[in-house]
Design a protein around this nucleic acid. Sequence first.
DNA 1: CAAGCGGGCCGTCACTGCAA
DNA 2: TTGCAGTGACGGCCCGCTTG
Length: 474
Amino acid sequence: MTHPTYEDDTVKAANDVSAAIVAAVAAGNSTFTDEGHLESMHIEALDAIEPLDTAAIETIVAGNPSLKRSAEDDEDDMEDSVKLRKLQEEVNNNTNAAAQASGILSSSTLSSHTSAHTSTNNSTHSSPHASSSPLETHVPTPPATDGSPMDVSPTPGSDTNGVTTSTSTTTPASASVSSTISDKKKASQEVVPEVVAAAAGTTTISESSYERIMADVERIRELAKIDPTQLASYSTNPNNQAAIEQLTSSALANVLAQAPALAPSLQTANAQLEQQHQQEDEQQQKAIQGILASMPTPAENAAAAAQDSSSSQDDDAPGKRSSNRDATNDERRQRRLLRNRVAAKECRKKKKAFVKELQDTCAFLKEENAKLYKEIEELNAKLTLGAMRADENVRLIKEVEELNAKLTMGAMVAPTNHVSEEEVTVKADDAPSSPVEATESEEQPEPTPQSETEVPVTTTEEASDAAKPVVASA
DNA sequence: CAAGCGGGCCGTCACTGCAA
DNA sequence: TTGCAGTGACGGCCCGCTTG
């Protein structure tokens, strides 16, 4: 797992220490309970296992339960596995973002800060198998963990559960660490508090994640009681780099997932960068003004004026109209050209900004247009559906009218064929007196689309009943 | 690998509008 | 009227890409 934004030396320094820890574990010194172990370790043992490959390291680490990551955050748990993949995706994203930021900052004086940040990440995110150096076991300050056992905020020279967190100040052998690594460590330690502060002040790390991280840190510290010289000796073997990177990837993903903590620092860096650019522009303007001011010296002006048989007066400040009168034609031309160069630059700059703004506006309008088109399509679809329903209603109404007409026709025919004269007489007595009432009573059972299906199955008697008033009125 | 081509950047010229 | 800022136009140079 290589992070392109990390400075190679810094990564190497961090990986060197981590690799040495892994090597020491592989050599059998997996339980370090006190400082005595440190002194009792043999460098020869480390030298013997330097050619250790990735598979061997994983086998050894897997065989030691105390070194193995807990099941809750290992691949044994499918859920965590999925989470891990997500975290790794976030890591990639954050790495890209950091790469961009680093690329931006690399051109400025802030590059050292950026690289220090990233290197700090690399050192802090190590897994127990490839733990970071005890020289820089700086852990993000836990969010309000009063008296919590997880509160392992690093204090140089302080011990937590008897584990020395900073061998650079407590272990005499640390002096033998290579100067290159020491320089990198110093650079990292200078910036670590900023990151820690940013992490503690601006981000909210979930408790589970924090516990996982702290568990890693604890394991790291247990493994970290190794002579730095041994670490350095192991780290010199390039064959171990791949194994180190592979082993650090898991814990790295855990902590890098909290990378938003770096956002405030990156924003600050960007703001500083913009401020620096403004200062550079101002300096450039001042330089140009200085050139303009220095070009027509009074002596030269006097000489030129004498040649031109014109009066020689004291030169005024640049920009004043009287100054150019005293300058020679060539001087005036040079000054004009210089001003025009600057003006042309400004104009092009302005033009580019304008074009960019236009492009942004165009992109925005395109997006907005697409949204509106989609909305129009939706509304048209709704309209079409409504029109279909209206047509259906019209069709149903017509059908009802036709059925009513049929009923009417059937009723007109029915009395002559099927109804006896007596019934007609009786019914005629109950019939409404006026035709208006007859029509109203007929229309009373207004057929609805739901009742429309019942109309065709109306019996002849019902039909005749419905038609009786009509017959009576007729 | 050299030639051609296109794009970007820069310097310069010419012109316009504004202000002293 | 004069100086100056702003800007379009033009040409030169450089760089990257494509092509034969």
